[in-house]
Each structure stands twice: as C-alpha cells, then as structure tokens.
Design a protein around this nucleic acid. Structure first.
Lengths: 238, 238
DNA sequence: TTAATAGTGTCTCTTAGACACTATTAT
DNA sequence: ATAATAGTGTCTAAGAGACACTATTAA
C-alpha cells in the first residue's frame, strides 16, 4: 500500500494489494397483514445454507450506493416493488458469519404497506438466486441462514422503538386508512393491546394526520372516517 | 460465482471473482475537557488528503471483528488506550467518498474520560499513518478529509440522544466524580445550561449513582460528595 | 468577612394511562 | 331488534421544568 508521505495518484493506488472482505446488503422487509407482523424471506437456492430461509440480500456493486443496493436486492430477489421506507439498520461483520469468506453485511430494514395498500405491496415472487419468496409471521419464523435471526431481531427492536417517537407507521399503511386500522398496526408491531381513546387522542394531537373527505363503510356498522398522514415521511413526534 | 443449486464447498468458492469495495473503520473519539466537547483527529501523512485532519481509522483485517478493528485503529493511530465505550454508529458507503477506490466505512464512536480521568485518557500521540494527533473542540473543527465532517455530526447527534435515555455518560467521567462535574459533562454535550436542582433530582432518582465514602475538597468552598456509577455500562433510564 | 461552590423543596403544568358509554350502520 | 364497529371525556398519577436560598470551606 502507500508508503508514508509519498503523494500518489488515484491511478497508482492498488486496491487489490490486500485481501479484502466482501460487502453485502441484507434487507429485513416488514409488513403488517392478517393482524400479524411479517418478514419477507427467500429460500436459498445455492450453497451455503441451500434450501434454508434467509433475508433477501446480495453483494454490493462496485459503484452502487448502499441504499440503492438494498432497494435493488429487495426487488430482484423477491419481486416486491420499492419499499416505502428503507433505513440502514446495523452492520454485521463477525468473522465466520458466512462460511464462504469474510462477508460484512450492511443490514437495512424496509417497511411496506399491507395487502390492499396499493401496488407497493404486491405478492412476492422468487427472483435471481432465490428458490422461493414469501412473507413469514415474525412470531413463527423458520430457522434462518447465517446470522439472519439476529438481524431480524435487531430490526424488530428498532421498528418498535421508532414507532414510539416518529411517524414511520405511515410506511406500513395505504394512503388512506381509518384510525382503527392505524391502531391495529401499532398493536401488531408492539404485540400488545392499546387503549382506543388514548391512542386516538395521542395520534390526533401529534399533528401528523388529517381527515380526508371520505369514509370507509364495510360491514353492518357505523362507517369510519378516513385519514391520511400529512407527510409521507418519518417525522419526530412531540 | 456460484451457479444455481449446485452444492459447493467453501474451498471451491472464489471470493476474488468480483471487484469488491474495501472496508474501513473510522472512529469518532469524544471526550469532555476544558468545559468543551472534543474529538480526536489525526493529521494525514499520506495521500489522499495529505496534511488534512481526519478521523482515526483504517482497513479492517481479514479475520478481525469490526469492533476490534475500531479499537485497534484508535489505539494505533492516536496512542490513546482502549475506549471506555465504543459503539457502532453508521456505515458510510457513498461511491466516490474516497478518491482511491470504493471504500465503505463502518463508523464507530468512542467515549473517553477527560484528563485526570485515569490512564484511559492519556494525551494522544501520532502513530502509523498519522503525522500528528490531537483533540479538537467540536465547535471549532478544521476542515476534515473525506466525509468525516458528516460522520462527526452523526456521532454528536447520536451521543446527544443517548445521553437522554441511557447512562452512557459514565464513559466520559472518571471512576469517582461530583454531581457538579457530571452536570458539566451533560451541559457541554448538550450545549445548554441545566437547572442544578432538577438535574440532581433526576440523576439521583435514576438509581444509577451511588455515593462513595469520599469527598472532593478543592478551592475555598464547601467540599463535594463523590459519586460513582453503580454499573460501568450504558443502561436504559426510566 | 468574603468569595466560591455544594446542596436542598415546592409548585405548576403537561402527559400517560385507566376507564364505559353512545352513535351509526347492515341485516 | 341485533350485532358489530366508530367515536367520545374525565380523572388521576407521575414527570418535567421554573424558581432562591442556606451550608461549608479557604483565604
């Protein structure tokens, strides 16, 4: 490599002079459906962990932004469209976490609206290296390849935390929704029931929602007011 | 690379088949001294950005844990002993952030006690690739190499946030300290004055401090009770 | 005695959480 | 009428923040 204090040009720098770790991105895509929180997994079609379920992910291209790599791998491997929300989670780099070679994985988590939430949450279909792709309920996951169990756990705790002090929930809901639907999303993620009156009071006071001119009428009961988030981005609450 | 569904052995896998980004760690080492928050910077002795100030950091070794790499680079480049607290911050990987080649940097932030805080905060001295190493007040930094300005800003906002809901402050203080010293650390980091009575009330109620049998007597005034953190680790408050 | 810092309580306001009934609709 | 969900208000407890004086020491 460079010797001390000798000016060099970019051309003279030899990036191949060292053994270098590989870099991947892995994506924990989450959605709420059937009153449960789900993660998108792919069944691996190749060694290692062939046949086991894993997070969608893959090698970062040489001139590709990490965020872009995460979006790309998510779409390529699972066929779902771009995530509504995608945020870097943590970088997992323990030597030995991948039997092939040293692989450092920059993990992202993605949020998508549930079914009926528009085109953003189409059903997955396996792409590239994946034999199969589908949503799994987070409370009943199969054994995961690599350290992906740990990555999923990290994503869940981050999502639960962020739900409390930001408006990220927008990314799990369609454009318009009822307050009951919003509450169900919170309950599913936090895995505990919330008081209806306190929930509505807090949400409406947070100044992140606005009523739309529409109502939703389904079933033999009073129709519900539809709301939308005033901003489709994660803003800090309070 | 691997073709679909063909089992292979680790030996048959060729990690050199692709161009791969390089991976570095960069460390934002922070300490409170002279009533200001400081970052540890090194002046670069080599191209690129030769002569400019930068974060200590360097390439991750092939079999080295990321955390270990961060500790190592911090010590090697600046001569300071192991950080009291060291946590992964964020991974910066924009193509073009390093003129040499594609470099993905896993940033860590480190906390060290101020001078007089025992051996853990010795004065820095330049090592390996660095021409010079010294503490800089965060509110008066020189121009930084690469995207290191952004990395420092990220570290500061993370530290400010964590200060509010954990006991990380322990890492910036010596084993024993007065409540006034603790408050000064908070004020320096948050860059605003705090009410003495409210601060003490909250800290003592948080059940993370215990009085020691000692007092500190300096100057012509009442001596102060010395306290220590009951646990030398970052615990959640409330 | 003075100068300098240590140490201490109360009141107010806001927020979080417990808690139960009426309104509207389709059948 | 009934069943099903939408929608609504009050009270209490805890925490956050404003605010000013006494205690102890060295010089």
């Amino acid at each position: 490599m460079n010797t001390k204090s000798e000016p060099e040009t970019a051309a003279a720098y030899d990036p191949g002079a060292f053994d270098r770790p590989s870099v991947t991105v892995d994506v924990v895509a989450l959605t709420a459906r059937d009153d449960r929180l789900h993660v998108l997994l792919v069944r691996r079609g190749v060694w290692p962990f062939e046949g086991q379920w894993a997070l969608p992910g893959g090698f970062v291209k040489m001139d590709e932004d990490l965020y872009a790599a995460a979006q790309r791998e998510l779409c390529e491997e699972t066929g779902v469209p771009a995530a509504t929300y995608l945020e870097q989670l943590y970088t997992f780099g323990a030597p030995g976490r991948d039997p092939r070679t040293r692989v450092i994985s920059v993990a992202y988590y993605a949020l998508l609206p549930g079914p009926g939430g528009g085109p953003a949450c189409a059903e997955p279909e396996a792409g590239s290296d994946a034999a199969e792709a589908r949503w799994w309920p987070v409370d009943a996951l199969p054994p995961l390849a690599f350290d992906h169990g740990e990555i999923v756990a990290t994503a869940l705790s981050r999502l639960r935390a962020k739900l409390g002090y930001t408006s990220v929930a927008y990314a799990l809901l369609p454009e318009e929704f009822t307050l009951s639907e919003l509450q169900r999303v919170y309950e599913v993620i936090l895995a505990r029931p919330l008081d209806k009156r306190n929930f509505r009071k807090k949400m409406l006071a947070a100044d992140i929602l606005e009523p739309t001119p529409r109502q939703r009428r389904v079933g033999a009961h009073r129709p519900a007011q539809l709301y939308r988030f005033t901003r489709r981005e994660a803003v800090l609450l309070d």
